[in-house]
Write a protein that binds this DNA or RNA. Structure first.
Lengths: 135, 135, 135, 135
DNA sequence: GTGGTCTAGACCACG
DNA sequence: GTGGTCTAGACCACC
């Protein structure tokens, strides 16, 4: 199944990050497998109606991470996924992300229960998306 | 209890956001109570070795959120909590925060269940902390 | 129709407020419609012969109010209208505006009835104006 | 009846202006008559728990306007009220005040009807206050 | 002393 | 090209 990238130009998240994030996630969720081919810089830029430089930057970032490879003349491919972080290191990185969400959520006047519910709801939506790709 | 703000000038997170974040956190945990006076713009700027304008911007943002009040000539104070944003707007702002956590969490190879559990655990810690400050 | 902003540097009203005020007015009267692009920070600063930071601050304030959106690298646009503040907060902010009008009006020796009449008259003019822009 | 001045230190309106405004209004509404004595700078400062300099500045402003006179050694008194502005000039000054209220009110998402109602309601409150003083 | 406003000019991220 | 952030330093209003 081809990767379907969605861009929100109104968001404060930079476009190139939206792209890298979605590809990274596609790999993490199994939607993109090792060896899969991605659209060319030009093709993706055109289909998203954005600047080719922006796509190039996203691909470039991912190539530096080793998540994909550009084979000149052939195209762009997902390369082997490597588990670089230890479980413990992953937890260490996760914690501040959670704390940020909690403190900002509380500043927005949400109770712990509301935050919990909103988080669970959003998680379910993500899982549904993932489920659909496996059909 | 005095608030101790720490700044990391090397971080990609803007300084003024590091400040707002830590003050929000102080309020959320109960370390900062309604009516508490914060250090003056100049004093905080000096102790952090940053420009007063940067502190002023942080205070300004929080004042707009209704978290604190600036009284020209007198100082800066934690204000009584009130619902400044509409619920709809609050939800609109909460959503991207949650999505960031989920997508980064998944990029870290955590399952939905693990994320949910980690979030719930962290929330419980916050509530305990807050309880302690209310003694 | 292009928005024509006029600045009075001699006024005691801060420049950034003169700007926000005129843009708010443009939106309220319908002269500025959703999706319209505003002049860039630098362009407006140059045409008004003021510092770009001052324009940026005005735009920033309006963005926080939800009246416009800044898209880094692309420009500044009028955003779809939405209820950003809670009704309670909106009323809280409206009240001092009304009180100022009343006390200044009374200082000008107008009776309550005269003020009421003048206000109603002005309101009608606004509605006519707005109607014209919607044609 | 003695003048009862109320100060709101949390307001964005400077304290000295709150004082001048209330005295000006007391005269306009007849609550303060020509020849009435005002509390001394020191006495008023103490009763309001504010800085004497602030009271002095307020009295000073009003003395410059000719609304009150300080008679050294005797006290501060309301002096003759003079109608300085022509009716037409008053109207010219009133109009922009009304327009500001309307455009800001609309930016706060209030309809013309809501603005009209809020204005009428606030006006009634002012009249009740005035009425009470005449009892 | 306090915060508010403005300028001038720099550097960065983004498209 | 766009806006975002930060610094340095000035002047003002207020207390």
């Amino acid at each position: 199944m081809a990767l379907n990238i969605n861009i929100n130009t109104g968001s404060s998240v930079p476009i190139y990050k939206q792209i890298t994030e979605q590809i990274r996630l596609g790999v993490a969720t199994g939607r993109l497998a090792v060896g899969d081919q991605l659209p060319s810089v030009r093709a993706l830029a055109e289909s998203l109606a954005i600047n080719p430089n922006t796509v190039a930057r996203a691909y470039n970032d991912l190539a530096h991470e080793g998540l994909l490879e550009t084979q000149p003349g052939r195209g762009v491919f997902i390369s082997a996924k490597r588990q670089v972080l230890s479980r413990e290191e992953s937890r260490r990185r996760l914690e501040p992300l959670i704390n940020t969400l909690i403190s900002e959520g509380m500043a927005l006047n949400f109770s712990a229960e509301e935050l919990q519910a909103a988080f669970a709801k959003q998680l379910r939506q993500w899982q549904n998306e993932k489920g659909n790709h496996h059909e």
